[in-house]
Design a binder for these strands. Structure first.
Length: 195
DNA sequence: CTTTGGATCGTCT
DNA sequence: GACGATCCAAAGG
């Protein structure tokens, strides 16, 4: 069943661990492609020096200051796309970075979407840019509605989040690196790095 | 297994 | 003009 927008309209640090196990479904291609969240990070907007939203809305970050339940997609390192689920209330700039997922259906489509030949299945979607490449997310999806939209939807298939999720500091930051705002499914092979 | 460096360009100062 | 919420191959142990 779909995840309600009100469920997403809460602080990123509350929402992030609860999203572990949630499913993203893409209906863009021929076959249905589905992935399950295994690793996320919370970004707390104006209060968080690590967030792209820290200095207020810009052309790039505008979507984060809109309503919850939309994708914030950004381009980085000159070649990679990454995606967040916008959460909280309008104007707060909160988001949950989708860092890794487990492939569920559409494995062949995702393998074809990866530029490099992926040898092991757990290398297919085990990183924020890998999952976007495999799942077909780019800048055209920035602002896409994942609650009540057309091409990508976030749903709850009954899988509960882990009772005790793994937790660590966020990865790849220079500022705000002290906060333990990364959560993951313990022992899952589809992680951007081991727990 | 771990470490290191190159690729590559939109965004903001 | 500097730099990044990354990925990958190559080299070393």
């Amino acid at each position: 069943m779909p995840i309600a927008r009100e469920m997403l309209a809460r602080p990123a640090v509350q929402l992030a661990p609860r999203l572990l196990g949630a499913v993203l479904v893409s209906t863009v291609g021929d076959a249905e492609v589905a992935i399950r969240l295994t690793e996320v990070e919370a970004y707390e907007g104006l209060d968080d020096p690590a967030s792209h939203a820290f200095r207020g809305p810009t052309r790039r970050t505008g979507v984060m200051f809109g309503p919850a339940g939309h994708l914030y997609c950004y381009f980085t390192y000159g070649m990679h796309w990454c995606a967040n689920a916008v959460c909280g209330d309008e104007g707060e700039g909160l988001a949950v970075l989708l860092r890794a997922v487990a492939p569920l259906t559409g494995l062949e489509e995702m393998r074809a979407a990866r530029k490099l030949k992926v040898r092991r299945e757990h290398d297919l979607c085990s990183g924020p840019a890998k999952l976007c490449q495999a799942f077909g997310v780019t800048g055209v999806h920035d602002g896409a509605d994942i609650v009540d939209g057309q091409d990508i939807l976030i749903v709850d298939d009954g899988t509960a989040p882990p009772r005790r999720p793994g937790n660590s500091v966020r990865i790849g930051l220079t500022a705000g690196a002290e906060h333990p705002w990364r959560w993951f499914v313990p022992g899952d092979p589809n992680l951007s790095r081991p727990g």
